[in-house]
Amino acid sequence: MTHIDPEALVASLRRMQKAAPATGIVYHLERIVQVVDRIFGYSGAGLMFADPDRTLRYLFATDEAGRSLEHAQATVQAGPCVAAYTTDDAVTTYDVRKDDRWPDLAALLHPDVRAVAGVPVRLGGEPVGTLNVYQDTTHDWEESDTEALHAYAHVIEQVIAAAVEAEEKSQLADQLQYALDYRVVIERAIGYLMGKHDLTASQAFTGLRKQARDSRRRVADLAAELLGEQGRGDPDHAI
């Protein structure tokens, strides 16, 4: 039985609160997905989150191919991750490009996206999004694979719940909505960088993220700046 010393925990969290500025739930989620991606060693990982109207949307992916996977599913509202969300269970595919369940996806996917697995991320027992991983080759997913994904999704759930504890729920919802909404600006900035510097989408995406991280700015603000627009939104909200 796990035991926590509440007094010691409060003293340590108080210490952590003293230093740097607040970042936000989306920043935490991105970092978790990046860590999960490194642990698994799959080709990529990502996170989709549901709108208030329960439409699953792209939130974060570790690379360009993963981004295409989430973007494609958000566009057609079908695919393994959408299915994982609607069925509230793990969904896998040996080769998403040839899977009869989602015939419209292949045309929208980066060629590196082949085997895909998605598991629901829940809050209060209800699915609110999905944790997704993909492989650039076909792959027979085993039960141990999805069990591990469920376990990481469970850690993500604790972090979301912790953020809910730490912040007003409305502010948290605003941060997630901001991230969902500002993906459009980020997509446009990637296109701009590709054209200006003759980059691939992947290079532009990675470069944009790195520059934002290095300068501790939100990706969306940097993207808006590149496009000649003013940084928008509340500076306390981070992507």
Partner: peptide, 24 residues
């Protein structure tokens, strides 16, 4: 190596509990 990565996860969780912080 996996332990180190899991340590990163714990830091993120602690930051969320503390109310948001920076890199780890």
């Amino acid at each position: 190596e996996k332990g180190a990565r899991l340590g990163e996860l714990v830091v993120v969780a602690l930051e969320a509990m503390a109310g948001g912080r920076t890199e780890s």
